[in-house]
Design a protein around this nucleic acid. Structure first.
Length: 145
DNA sequence: ATTCTAACA
DNA sequence: TGTTAGAA
């Protein structure tokens, strides 16, 4: 009793909360290979599972190329040792990238801290701001004239 | 109503 | 990827 459950592109799009366009795009990138019923695409459970994995990879921040490499253009040897090792490498790279971003953000937040203090400090010294300073300067220049 | 291809913002 | 035009 083989499971012949099939889905249209619209079915999967709704189920995964994406647009049919995105699904066709993944196909163009070589990540999905649905069967055709004339022109229309027909997806089975295997395709559906695969689409789920693709979106899973996207959530992790992987590129479609990386996802494709991990899933393999073909099915079957998905959990082979080589694939798992490759996944570990990709995940390590991803971790590095995120940690770098975290550092960059921390650096910018630090600069913002400094600038904020300088601004507050300046306001404390001269609450009226540059306008008052200019007025004072103009007054002094007027005295001389 | 849905899906498809192709092309462009 | 989104959008869109025109066809199936």
């Amino acid at each position: 009793m083989i499971d012949e459950t099939t889905y249209t592109i619209g079915d999967l799009a709704r189920e995964f909360g994406i647009t049919p366009r995105a699904i066709r795009f993944y196909e163009d990138e070589g990540l999905l290979a649905p069967v055709r019923a004339g022109r229309n695409r027909i997806y089975n459970k295997r395709h559906r599972t695969r689409l789920g994995l693709i979106l899973r990879g996207k959530r992790l921040g992987l590129s479609l190329a990386e996802i494709g490499e991990l899933l393999g253009m073909y099915d079957g040897l998905r959990d082979s040792a080589p694939q798992l090792r490759r996944l570990l490498v990709v995940l390590a790279e991803r971790r590095r990238a995120l940690e770098q971003q975290r550092e960059d953000i921390a650096a910018v937040l630090g600069e913002i801290d400094i600038l904020e203090r300088q601004c507050a400090e300046q306001l404390a010294e001269n609450p009226e701001g540059a306008a008052a300073a200019h007025a004072a300067l103009a007054a002094r220049l007027g005295e001389g004239a």
